[in-house]
Nucleic acid binder design. Structure first.
Lengths: 193, 193
DNA sequence: GCTCTCATGTAAATGGTTACATGATTCT
DNA sequence: AGAATCATGTAACCATTTACATGAGAGC
């Protein structure tokens, strides 16, 4: 069986708490989005090869679900992966590819792209700041305990907040560029001195 | 013909200056890596559909090459793309997926992963800082001119430096976590007071 | 002698998305 | 009445990587 990194992520999420495929997709959405059509086949393979086991959970008023748990061999597999070294990150950011060629258009295009980006980043920052708040109030001791998964979450959330803030700062700097800012200066009333 | 974002990037890079497939791969490496097996078919398609044109350049002492340029219809296509809105970025970072599950191991694992990450980030920071220096000394006026591609490069380089610095800061914070730092404190000689 | 750079491509495989199928319940 | 959520999956397609093929010249 081929273990790609998404498979290890699925194992890692199930190890925190048994879940259905549907729940995994939701949980992954903010961290590393994946579609259900990718997750369900991974779960089948994990079970077929003994790395995970499933049990039917009957529900009333909504569809029944299949809840998966990690087996000891699954946990071992995950541990061994953590003793390896990760590949460098892959970033596919169409916004940056657009900035790459924006010089062939007018400054207005750059302004629009950066303003839209700011909207996106501001929303993300809000989301992760809320998450940090929740972690701090709901799990004040766990986030300081290395052996709790909340500690991992806390580290990742703090990182996300830090880099997002820096990205926002960069956007605001771009909007202060003369080519963009002179237009705003004209539109504004003279500053009262 | 299907234009994916990599195709637009290729168009954007050729518009700056005509290049061979081999040169495109090198140029893209630091910004958005792509293999030659992906680039060459894109170039063929662009030419077949009239968005780019090629000419053989004969060389002595090294293989001849095919240098591609963007046609006016290619430039139009690129401009239209810049009037759309980009999809949210996709980040595949195995390091972060490992941090996600590191709580099932010992603090040493986290320490090793973060130290390796610091090496990687430090190298990247050096690379982009050098690049910024080069841009500032070689193109002092172009980087301030919106209609020069050096301006786009300068914006992207500055962003990269800013977020990388923040990522490095986070790594160093993680290394100061009690679970990791107490070990170092024991290894160190008592601080002279 | 070995590895690196230059240079262009094809074939096979993997990773991931889009589209489709199905259906009850709850919210607007 | 229509959209959203819960729930699981398959088939087809797209994007990208790995592996392969070829070959000359430069540097160690």
């Amino acid at each position: 069986m081929i273990f790609n990194t998404t498979t290890y992520l699925v194992l890692g999420i199930l190890l925190r708490e048994p879940r259905s495929g549907y729940d995994i997709v939701k949980e992954l959405a903010s961290f590393r989005p994946a579609k259900s059509s990718q997750i369900y086949p991974i779960l089948s393979k994990l079970e077929k090869n003994g790395y995970a086991s499933s049990s039917q959970v009957l529900q009333t008023g909504r569809p029944n679900k299949k809840v998966y748990s990690v087996t000891s061999s699954g946990k071992e597999k995950l541990k061994k992966w953590l003793d390896t070294s990760p590949e460098p990150p892959v970033i596919r950011d169409d916004f940056l590819s657009m900035i790459f060629s924006v010089w062939i258009k007018e400054p207005e295009t750059l302004e629009r792209l950066v303003l839209q980006r700011l909207d996106y980043l501001t929303e993300r920052l809000q989301y992760f700041t809320d998450r940090q708040q929740t972690l701090e109030t709901a799990f004040p001791s766990e986030i300081r305990n290395f052996y709790s998964w909340h500690h991992s979450n806390y580290l990742l959330t703090r990182r996300r907040i830090a880099v997002t803030k820096e990205d926002i700062k960069w956007c605001k700097e771009v909007l202060e560029e003369p080519a963009i800012a002179w237009k705003r200066a004209q539109a504004e009333p003279p500053s009262p001195v």
